[in-house]
Structure formats: C-alpha cells, structure tokens
Measured scan of single mutants.
Amino acid sequence: MEVKRLKVTELRSELQRRGLDSRGLKVDLAQRLQEALDAE
C-alpha cells in the first residue's frame, strides 16, 4: 500500500481499522499508518 497516495479520509479509515489514533495532519496520519504497516 502506498501510504503517501492515500487521501486523509482513507488514512483515517485505515488507522481506525487498526485501532490507532486517527487525529492529526495528513503527514502525521501517513507516518502513523506506515509505522503500523512496517510492524505487521
């Protein structure tokens, strides 16, 4: 999954699906999701 290409709504949805905080700026959301994906 290319996290950088996702829209903010898509980032928030993916973070919520993983039980992670979905608040913040797009750059923060993308970093949080990328870290979660790397840990999987």
Rank of each mutant, 00 (worst) to 15 (best):
M1F: 09
M1E: 11
M1G: 04
E2M: 11
E2S: 07
E2Q: 08
E2F: 06
E2A: 06
E2T: 07
E2I: 07
E2K: 04
E2Y: 09
V3A: 10
V3Y: 08
V3H: 02
V3G: 06
V3S: 07
V3L: 10
V3P: 11
K4R: 09
K4E: 14
K4Q: 12
K4T: 13
K4G: 10
K4M: 14
R5M: 12
R5E: 14
R5C: 10
R5P: 03
R5S: 13
R5Y: 07
R5H: 15
R5W: 07
R5G: 12
L6G: 03
L6Q: 08
L6F: 11
L6D: 00
L6Y: 03
L6R: 02
L6W: 06
L6S: 03
L6C: 00
K7Q: 14
K7R: 09
K7P: 11
K7H: 11
K7E: 13
K7A: 11
K7I: 04
V8R: 06
V8C: 09
V8D: 13
T9R: 12
T9G: 12
T9S: 11
T9M: 14
T9N: 12
E10A: 05
E10V: 05
E10L: 01
E10P: 01
E10Y: 00
E10N: 01
L11G: 03
L11W: 00
L11T: 03
L11I: 10
L11R: 01
L11K: 03
R12H: 05
R12K: 15
R12F: 02
R12W: 00
R12M: 10
R12V: 10
R12C: 06
S13T: 13
S13V: 12
S13L: 14
E14F: 01
E14P: 00
E14Q: 08
E14S: 02
E14W: 00
L15W: 00
L15Y: 02
L15R: 00
L15A: 03
Q16D: 11
Q16A: 12
Q16N: 11
Q16E: 14
Q16R: 10
Q16W: 02
Q16H: 09
R17P: 04
R17E: 10
R17N: 01
R17W: 02
R17I: 09
R17M: 13
R17G: 07
R17H: 07
R17D: 08
R18A: 01
R18L: 08
R18G: 03
R18M: 08
R18S: 02
R18F: 01
R18Q: 02
G19M: 01
G19V: 00
G19I: 00
G19S: 07
L20Q: 05
L20A: 05
L20I: 09
L20K: 04
L20F: 05
L20S: 03
D21H: 04
D21Y: 08
D21I: 00
D21G: 02
D21C: 11
D21L: 02
S22P: 15
S22F: 15
S22M: 11
S22T: 15
S22E: 12
S22C: 11
S22L: 09
R23T: 15
R23G: 14
R23D: 15
R23M: 08
R23Y: 13
R23K: 14
G24M: 00
G24Y: 00
G24C: 01
G24K: 00
L25A: 15
L25Q: 13
L25I: 11
L25Y: 12
L25K: 15
L25T: 15
L25P: 15
K26D: 12
K26P: 13
K26L: 09
K26Q: 13
K26W: 09
K26A: 11
V27M: 13
V27N: 14
V27E: 13
V27C: 14
V27G: 12
V27F: 10
D28R: 05
D28V: 10
D28C: 06
D28Q: 10
D28G: 03
D28P: 01
D28T: 13
D28S: 04
L29K: 06
L29V: 05
L29M: 14
L29Y: 03
L29F: 02
L29H: 05
L29P: 06
A30S: 09
A30W: 07
A30D: 08
A30M: 14
A30T: 11
A30V: 13
A30E: 13
Q31M: 12
Q31V: 13
Q31I: 13
Q31Y: 10
Q31T: 14
Q31W: 09
Q31D: 08
R32L: 00
R32W: 00
R32Y: 08
R32I: 00
R32P: 04
R32F: 00
L33D: 07
L33F: 01
L33Q: 07
L33K: 09
L33I: 00
L33A: 07
L33R: 05
L33V: 04
Q34Y: 03
Q34F: 01
Q34N: 10
Q34W: 02
Q34T: 10
E35S: 12
E35T: 13
E35Q: 14
E35C: 12
E35D: 13
E35F: 08
A36C: 12
A36Y: 08
A36Q: 08
L37D: 07
L37K: 08
L37H: 12
L37C: 07
L37V: 11
D38L: 06
D38G: 06
D38A: 08
D38H: 02
D38V: 08
D38P: 04
D38T: 12
A39K: 12
A39F: 09
A39Q: 13
A39N: 15
A39Y: 05
E40V: 02
E40P: 02
E40R: 05
E40M: 01
